[in-house]
């Protein structure tokens, strides 16, 4: 295998989604995003539909990567949490299991303290799910793309 794949099956995505939904409600955040460390959105909850989640995911991942770079230069293992405070909106970002980023976007309807408390709880639940994802990845699954033909690939570029 040249490039490792991140594969998420419906079961795990549903479990991650339910953690995101609960965190969004319990922390009274506007939206909660679960993003892969490489910037791919895995789950979104709350008013995420109003947001450009693709761009947000990529920027958050860039931000976490840059912060990781700073940590490395300071010989710190990793900065697991970040908080950006705005006039109306704030963002809490945390890295879970070195693999996934949990983003809580919130406003004056809640407090940083409550968000942090609920994020901590969600952290534990997500870590357990991520372990299951990793376990599943160890057992070979059927590759649905093994059947792709050259014609399938060419068809994508036919306009």
């Amino acid at each position: 295998m040249l490039t490792p794949l991140l594969v998420m099956y419906e079961d795990e995505v549903r479990r991650i989604q339910s953690v995101a939904d609960r965190l969004q409600q319990d922390s009274r955040s506007r939206a909660v995003l679960v993003v892969d460390k490489n910037g791919q959105l895995i789950a979104a909850s709350g008013s995420a539909a109003e947001l450009d989640t693709t761009s947000l995911s990529s920027l958050v991942a860039g931000n976490v990567a840059a912060t990781g770079g700073i940590a490395k230069l300071m010989e710190e293992d990793e900065f697991t949490g970040q908080f950006h405070e705005g006039k109306d909106a704030s963002v809490h970002i945390s890295l879970i299991g070195r693999r996934v980023i949990l983003v809580a976007l919130f406003d004056k309807n809640t407090t940083l303290g409550l968000v942090k408390l609920r994020v901590k709880k969600a952290n534990v639940e997500l870590e357990a799910i991520l372990e299951d994802v990793a376990k599943k990845a160890e057992t070979p699954q059927q590759n649905v793309f093994a059947e792709i033909t050259d014609a399938d690939i060419d068809n994508l570029f036919n306009d």
């Binding site: 490039t3 490792p4 794949l5 991140l6 594969v7 998420m8 099956y9 419906e10 995505v13 549903r14 892969d36 490489n38 910037g39 791919q40 895995i42 793309f145």
Partner: peptide, 15 residues
Amino acid sequence: MSFINYSSREINCKL
């Protein structure tokens, strides 16, 4: 790292 999401039936690749 390609990301395959069976739930939303998406493949994401980074170039």
